[in-house]
Design a protein around this nucleic acid. Structure first.
Lengths: 170, 170
DNA sequence: AATATTAATGCAGTGAGCTGTATACTCATG
DNA sequence: CATGAGTATACAGCTCACTGCATTAATATT
């Protein structure tokens, strides 16, 4: 955790930006029920903030509270958009998809002619790590902000049975 | 002139952005030889600034002084590439553009179907940091040689009102 | 070379943005 | 209703970006 802080931001504004990005990430990773839990999750991610600041971040980010398994948890803003992640899962179930990594780009490969649909499904899933996608014929380039986030994207796709290409970099 | 100022920006930051946009405009419109002439041209456009501020703007904008008709006049950067930067500016004025960063890739997002035009405008603008571009439907990946150069690209785009996506990393 | 003109910059003041503290507000529970 | 948990927000202090003034530095002119 400390290693995360070492490369810390230089201004309040930069820290705020990165903290909010971390917030979007943690609410996507695990169920968090209270703002104090968010405070603790942020601290674990190297950001020290109080409940007041988190309350403000929630408003600015448009985080929502959704009912899940009988409890209310914080979630990214589009989590209630109908079937976003399900759409990606269905694509991966219907078509073979391979994944590889090149720096901050996750390279997805599927059947010829399917890249646009795959990119659209990915956009619809609103993965917080994804900053942009570009589709060719059978290949989609998925940009993440930092190389380490490729791991998160790959892990999410692995839940849908997407295998890493033989010999592909991690 | 007063009517121009009445609808003026609300913060220094907004005023600075608009003043610099005005500066880029006036150096493109007519020959201006000294920073005091720039000060007067800005005042005519509704911006009150001193020579000190203009000097700083010139550095930030990368304005150059070029020999023209036996005299030296201020000109936009890349002015030797015919109208390039104007083309990018016009695109950004006509369409909403968001920017994010993924390592050495600046990810630009605009309206569906416009990515090619945006990439072309960017190519025409000949930003020295840009190594290459690839366009999808609504997204353009802009490659720079080094991560730190993403900052320069973003700052230049910010002059045209391009905002960084909420939560996007710097 | 001397002088005038032009451009750059150190410093201090100001405004905007951000944060934590303390407290008000809201909601759930017994 | 009382109480506790969770959330929102007023206020004050701090940080940072921006600007003009005054001066220095650089360049042009004679």
């Amino acid at each position: 955790m400390t290693s995360v802080s070492v490369a810390g931001p230089r201004t309040d504004r930069a820290r705020k930006r990165q903290r909010q990005q971390a917030l979007l990430r943690v609410v996507g990773e695990r169920p968090l029920h209270t703002q104090e839990e968010l405070v603790r999750a942020l601290r674990a991610a190297g950001f020290h903030a109080t409940q007041a600041t988190v309350s403000r971040d929630i408003v600015e980010l448009g985080l929502v509270k959704v009912a899940r398994d009988g409890a209310h948890v914080y979630a990214p803003p589009a989590a209630t958009a109908a079937g976003g992640i399900d759409r990606l899962r269905r694509f991966c179930e219907d078509y073979p998809v391979e994944v590889a990594v090149a720096g901050t780009i996750v390279v997805l490969r599927s059947l010829p002619g399917t890249a646009n649909a795959l990119a659209a499904a990915l956009d619809a899933s609103r993965l917080p790590e994804v900053v942009g996608t570009i589709a060719g014929d059978d290949t989609v380039f998925v940009a993440v902000a930092h190389e380490r986030e490729t791991r998160t994207v790959i892990d999410r796709l692995a839940l849908f049975g997407v295998m890493q290409r033989r010999g592909a970099q991690t």
